[in-house]
Amino acid sequence: MTVGQQFEQKWQENSGKIIRIRQIAELPGFLEGIVRSYGHHGNMPIVMAGLPKTWSDAISQGSAQAAYLWAEGGDKERFRQYCEGSTLGVTGCAWAAADAGSVSLYSDSEQSLLPSLLPPIHAVILKESQIAETFQSGLQAMYQHAKETHFWPSLIKVIAGPSMTADIEGQLILGVHGPQDVYAVIVEE
């Protein structure tokens, strides 16, 4: 089993959903489909952060739905309001782990954690080359990088599935505070 296949399996075991696309042009149609099936009432259905420019441009231009991208120097109050009112948050990630079925996001000038937190659906887009074999090796690589650059992001978030609770009678419910659906979109290179 390849690292990518192992990630897929574990991510799904964690109640996440998987999409594989061959080229970035397929992305807008797919994201639009999610928003349409979930329904949307506000004026900013999609919020984005931490994506390569080609990807975010593809989404903004290729989608009929309005999409807002967090960028360095942006108005954080306005971005927070958009995130609160949106249906779908789209982010990149710093790395993923195959054995745990997890993705890791860093809060910095380009990447915001809010699209992965406030909207009811989160889609994280990643390349297969970003997937570490184990969560432990991913953590070690992250540490090495931080040591070399003398920089730790103020917030790091590791996501392994949708927001969930079993606090009432032990029954599992998805989407208590964060997203009820998380999609990992793997872009084949």
């Binding site: 942006g74 997890s102 590791v158 969930m164």
Partner: peptide, 15 residues
């Protein structure tokens, strides 16, 4: 589902 690591207060450019 969530493992969060905090290193410090918000860096000026963060959202």
């Amino acid at each position: 589902s969530y493992t969060t690591m905090v290193h410090g207060p918000r860096q000026s450019a963060s959202a």
